[in-house]
Design a protein around this nucleic acid. Sequence first.
DNA 1: GCGGATTATAAGTCAAACCTTATGGTTTCG
DNA 2: CGAAACCATAAGGTTTGACTTATAATCCGC
Lengths: 303, 303
Amino acid sequence: MHLTLRQLQVFESVARHLSFTRAAEELHLSQPAVSMQIKQLEAQAGLSLLEQYGKKNALTEAGREFYQYSKSILQQVDELDGILQELKGLRRGCLDVAVATTANDFATRLLAAFAREHEALNYRLEVSNRETLLARLEANEMDLVIMGRPPADKPLVSEPFMENPLVVIAPPEHALANERQIALDKLVREPFVVREKVSGTRIAMERFFHQHGFELASQMELTSNESIKHAVQAGLGLGVVSRHTLRLELETGRLAILDVEGFPIVRHWYLVHRQGKRLSAVAQAFREFVLNRGAAFAPLPRV
Amino acid sequence: MHLTLRQLQVFESVARHLSFTRAAEELHLSQPAVSMQIKQLEAQAGLSLLEQYGKKNALTEAGREFYQYSKSILQQVDELDGILQELKGLRRGCLDVAVATTANDFATRLLAAFAREHEALNYRLEVSNRETLLARLEANEMDLVIMGRPPADKPLVSEPFMENPLVVIAPPEHALANERQIALDKLVREPFVVREKVSGTRIAMERFFHQHGFELASQMELTSNESIKHAVQAGLGLGVVSRHTLRLELETGRLAILDVEGFPIVRHWYLVHRQGKRLSAVAQAFREFVLNRGAAFAPLPRV
DNA sequence: GCGGATTATAAGTCAAACCTTATGGTTTCG
DNA sequence: CGAAACCATAAGGTTTGACTTATAATCCGC
């Protein structure tokens, strides 16, 4: 049986009006067109759906069943259509974003700003370390990810949208806090508090020291930026963090940025997604939002 | 937007297999034919429904919505078709029944007896655990289900048609096998072999012990009734199972039923279907068969 | 019986739906 | 790197779907 949605549509109209002519008018068709559709339908069903007595039409039992199902099916098609329209028009959809822990602060404000402009949408924000982010991308579980520069050997598309300066921090009362142009060989003799080995910040930092022929003398490893800042405040050592994470600490004078030669190390924040990933309308909108206006949401705190 | 049922059908297959090639095989089409249908569908919808990453395919959000509606719409078309066939008096049709694993034994004989009286029909019998059965009902994929009492908060119609006594089994040579009126506090110190937590039998059993203020001392968890019976035979512990599953084991003397106070726990078998489900003529006939004569097909084996 | 309304039938047109085979490009995996 | 699996694209052909207009045929009410 080769049913057509068109047939259902025509039949529904006929059944509702109990008139071929009315149906033809409603559908902007000629009357014979309607006759044909119904006839065809009846032939395919092997049953008559309408019976005429005199000038009037009535539905047979099969016709009534058919009518019920026609309505229901057409309604579902309508609903589906509506949903697709909403998905297209950014009135519906879900955005899956993940950000590096280091980017938590400004990324949250960024997403919040975007969400304010698109209230009908749903969002999921995941905050993870670099390793997890890459795994999520690999498994195709995220629309977009905000992180440091991803490895070049993966099938990823990454677009830088903002600078990410790494600075050396110390307690304000630290001996080096007032020096200018601190030399690296002096710095590396200090104890340091660092992130775990897979962290983007840690990798960049080590690469920097290595390039300049130095190695840190003493390190203590912690797994979050917040821990690092607290440890530095407590005098456990110096630290290297993204300047974007320091808003509060600088304002309240809890931490100081050291003026070290070669610093800040300027890296970038990247908006990353899988190569070949078809971005949804929502994801596409967010991408443009970030690339065009992302930088505005993380003004560098004054030193 | 000019949707076609054919398109939905092809898309449904692709979405289910997440493979163009599999879908083509299923529909007896060439693979490019499938590609084209999908492409056209996406063009009409104005959204991409599938994305490829590597060799794999995944549904986009729009694709997921589309898939849901496709299934639902196609199913309605199927139902409609079935109804028309019945109206034509062909009684053609397929009865979809699912039963709990515990009911496998007598349900199979029951369906066999019914089939003997209605040879022109086709049957599908699925044997699953409770969780799966409920999911099948929810998705409207089954005409009728035979299982223990379903949760009251679901939109289901359930009709009891037979008792289901749960008994404690042991190897015949077990120390308790010859005792009469075994006290519960004595029983619960024995090791037990039990079904997984979602199993109906497990739930009833735990509720029973809990109500009497006891808890089993030692449990080993297995996922089928057959495994349980084997484990009990092997002396790994006692078990609680439906007496209906014990025909062979009792006849051949491989297992013994213990005479425990409060046992058997009497539950019931239910014939279940979705609320509002329109039962086909076949399903209706089977329902009456089960309700009226079902009990006769599971004579309780003598102890 | 006749005008008006309604549906059926016929013939013809045009587009597009649907499928095929052949081939090319990726990706994965041994 | 080469084979295998998988999907995309191209080109081509046949069918059939969905209309149209024109013309019966039927039925109602007066």
